[in-house]
Structure formats: structure tokens, C-alpha cells
């Protein structure tokens, strides 16, 4: 795999930009997709946000200072794009963010790209009840299996704080699943 520093340099060099961008997209598209999908839930929305994320990366690569890893920088853009997408949609429909997210979860039952059984659907309903930070940490740790150190750089939170959020989230989810 191409070295990150070389990739960033190539992305900033006009003649090498197109190829470097393709490498970047190929390297990160799946990981960023799953991060976005865990927030927006529907595939079509995830596709929209993923494209917007890469467009933003492409346009702002000159502003990438290199003081964070390219991976964390892009993950942060993807996360913010997805969260803002949800907020904008909720605003457009004149409902609160929470109501909108509950609606997203109930849409899953009819979603052809969600092949979950009853317990997996319940889990998504349970995740929707978590505060935003816990939701992000849980998805990143449990489903995407990111390391706490990586999550810490992406969300700009201490590892200790993340561990606390994660365990709180797991406890709440188990409680929810047991009660239901």
C-alpha cells in the first residue's frame, strides 16, 4: 500500500492528483461507508453522504495539515457529514432529530438492504435511544472494531472517556434488549 505521506503529497500535486485520489477512494470507501451507514441507516442516504464526503476531501486536501492521520481526518469529515445530513433532513421535515432517527429505524423493517432478524431490529431501535456520543462510540467499537486510540483521534475524546461511554452504551443496550 502506498505510504500516507506520499499519498497526501500526490493529492496536492496537480499531475498526480487523479491517480492519488483514486487510490484514496479505493483505500477508504468501505470503511467510511460503514461509518456513515451506521449513522444514516439507509443505503441511499449513505451513498449520498459518502460521495459528499469524498468531494469535500478532494476540495479541502490542501487544507489538510498532516497533524492528524489522513484516516482520522476523513473519518471525522464523514461523521460530521452524516450527522449534519440527519439534522438537515429532520429540519426539512420539521421534526426533532430524535423523532427523525426513530423514523429511520422504523423504515428499516421495509428496507431491502437490511436483512436483520427481530433481535437485530430491536438492537437498532435500542441504539437509536442512546445519546449521540454513545451511539457513535458503540458503532465504531462494536461493529467497525476500531481501536479506542483511533476513535479517540476521530472524536477528539480521551480514551478513558470513550471506554466509559462504550460500557455505558453496552449496559443500556442490554437492558433495553432484556426488557423488550
Amino acid at each position: 500500500m502506498i505510504e500516507e505521506e506520499t499519498l497526501v503529497l500526490d493529492l496536492k500535486t496537480k499531475s498526480k492528483q487523479a491517480h492519488a485520489f483514486e487510490v484514496l477512494v479505493n483505500t477508504y470507501k468501505e470503511r467510511l461507508y460503514w461509518q456513515i451507514r451506521s449513522i444514516v441507516l439507509s443505503h441511499d442516504d449513505a451513498d449520498d453522504v459518502l460521495q459528499n464526503t469524498f468531494i469535500k476531501v478532494y476540495k479541502n486536501i490542501d487544507g489538510f495539515k498532516g497533524d492528524s492521520k489522513l484516516f482520522s481526518w476523513m473519518y471525522r469529515i464523514a461523521t460530521n457529514e452524516a450527522l449534519n445530513y440527519i439534522k438537515q433532513r429532520a429540519k426539512l421535515q420539521g421534526v426533532s432529530d430524535t423523532d427523525y432517527q426513530n423514523k429511520l429505524v422504523s423504515n428499516l423493517e421495509a428496507d431491502v438492504y437490511f436483512e436483520g432478524d427481530e433481535i437485530q431490529l430491536q438492537l437498532q431501535k435500542a441504539i437509536a435511544t442512546l445519546p449521540e456520543k454513545q451511539k457513535l462510540v458503540f458503532n465504531m467499537k462494536y461493529f467497525q472494531e476500531l481501536k479506542y486510540e483511533e476513535i479517540s483521534k476521530i472524536l477528539d475524546t480521551s480514551v478513558g472517556g470513550l471506554k466509559a461511554s462504550y460500557h455505558l452504551a453496552v449496559k443500556k443496550l442490554e437492558q433495553y434488549l432484556k426488557e423488550d
Partner: peptide
Amino acid sequence: TIPKDSAFKVPDNYFESFN
């Protein structure tokens, strides 16, 4: 008690045609 698979799927060849 928490299932490990999130059950989200993508259309066939989605990542291949994404670029």
C-alpha cells in the same frame, strides 16, 4: 445478548461501481 452482525447490506457491486 447483542448480535455481532448489524444486518446492513449493500447492493451488488456497489463498492466496485462507486468510483
